[in-house]
Amino acid sequence: MLIELTDVRKAFNQGKPNEFWAIQGITTQFEVNRISCLKGASGSGKTTLMSMIGCLSRPTSGRIRLQDRTISSLPERFLTQVRRHTFGFIFQRFNLIPGLSVVENIMLPAYPLGLKASSLRNRADRLLEQFLLADKSDNPVEWLSGGEAQRVAICRALINDPQILIADEPTANLDSRLSREFMALLDELSKSGKTVLISSHDPVVFDSPVVDRVVELEDGVMVAGET
């Protein structure tokens, strides 16, 4: 197993009248080299859960283990270090920084690693080629179409060569043809050895044949998808 969650809970506005438990005790595991999908309506807690798995935030209680390391009690400084070597993120709205060129956006996650400029640039160029963006490399990201922006976001997620890819509602801004293309890309990545975790309420995603496992969430609890 790769990721192990034990009774994970997350509260917001703790101790205030509007206290709210977004995740209320989830225990499960995610395996290596699979495509798993978190399914649920908006507000079901899937994004919160994804952000905890992806080291973007810490659970209020419970334990998350990544391989043999407990990450749920790491302070942010070290959580970030784990995150940038292990996880690549693809966001719903792509979240590219306008005003920067395609290649600059892709290299952004690698800046804090202090790599040699030329080898970083090479790595970005290889990814751009792989995703058929080589001729767009110096364009500002505002000029890209939806599908291209999605592919740039994938390149950015891959720049630090992470083991695990996390995609949050990746198809929300894509039409069904582009969505299916995206799923095919994920399948390729999975075959090349990446573990993929998607959150979605889009049937194109969770009914896709490439998805190995679907976990369903409702109001912060798992209702289906035990292995």
């Binding site: 997350k10 509260a11 703790q14 209020t60 749920s72 009690s73 302070p75 942010e76």
Partner: peptide
């Protein structure tokens, strides 16, 4: 309390 994930602890860390 480093073990805690409470919001107080998160605020202190920040």
């Amino acid at each position: 309390d480093i073990q805690s994930g409470s919001e107080l602890q998160l605020r202190l860390e920040r």
